[in-house]
C-alpha cells in the first residue's frame, strides 16, 4: 500500500468524529471543519512509521491542540460559547444536529454540555470517538486512572439527571 491510501482511509474513518469533537471545543461547525482539515494536512506531512502505530491518539491530540489554539484566537467568541453552555440553551450540538431526530439524543447532549469540561471531553472521546481509556489519557495528558474517574463521575451525573435525580447515591 502506498501513502495516499493510508491517509485516505484515515480520513474516511475519523473525519466525522474529529469534526464533532472539534466543534465542541470551538463552538461552530465551519471552524471545526477547518481545524480538522488542518489536522489532516499535518498528517500528510508527518512520518508514517512514527504516526501510524498511534494514529488515533495522534489525530485527536493534534486536532485538540489546533482547536484549543483556534478558540484562544477567537477569544471572545469562545467565551461566549462557554457562558452559553452554563445556561438552558447550551448547545454547540445544535449546529451539529441537522441529522438529529430523537428527543432523547437532544436531551442527552444538552445534559452533557452542562458537565464540567474535562468530564465532557472524556465522554466525547470515548463514545463519540471510540477511544480507549489509555488513548484518551494520552490525548488529554491525564493519567489512565484519572480518565476512569472523570468518566465515572460524568456518567453518574448524567444518569442522575436523565432519570430525574431518582438514582441511588447522593445527587
Amino acid at each position: 500500500m502506498h501513502e495516499p491510501t493510508w491517509i485516505h482511509s484515515a480520513l474516511e474513518r475519523h473525519e466525522r468524529a474529529l469534526i464533532a469533537f472539534a466543534a465542541r471545543i470551538v463552538g461552530d461547525l465551519e471552524t471545526a471543519r477547518e481545524v480538522v482539515q488542518e489536522t489532516f494536512l499535518k498528517l500528510c506531512a508527518a512520518r508514517r512509521e512514527e504516526v501510524e502505530p498511534k494514529l488515533v491518539e495522534w489525530l485527536f491530540t493534534t486536532c485538540r491542540n489546533a482547536a484549543l489554539d483556534q478558540r484562544r484566537r477567537l477569544g471572545a467568541r469562545g467565551q461566549r460559547m462557554e457562558a452559553h453552555e452554563m445556561e438552558e440553551h447550551p448547545d454547540p450540538s445544535s449546529a451539529l444536529s441537522a441529522l438529529e431526530t430523537k428527543d432523547e439524543s437532544a436531551r442527552v447532549l444538552k445534559l452533557l454540555a452542562r458537565l464540567p469540561q474535562k468530564q465532557r471531553e472524556v465522554l466525547q472521546l470515548r463514545f463519540g470517538g471510540g477511544l480507549s481509556y489509555k488513548q484518551i489519557a494520552s490525548v488529554t495528558g491525564d493519567t489512565v486512572g484519572n480518565v476512569g474517574w472523570l468518566m465515572h463521575a460524568g456518567l453518574k451525573t448524567l444518569r442522575e439527571r436523565l432519570s430525574g435525580g431518582a438514582l441511588q447515591g447522593r445527587s
Partner: peptide, 9 residues
C-alpha cells in the same frame, strides 16, 4: 446513540 445521531457531515 446521541453521538451517532449528532455526527456531522
Amino acid at each position: 446513540r446521541a453521538f451517532a445521531a449528532a455526527e456531522a457531515d
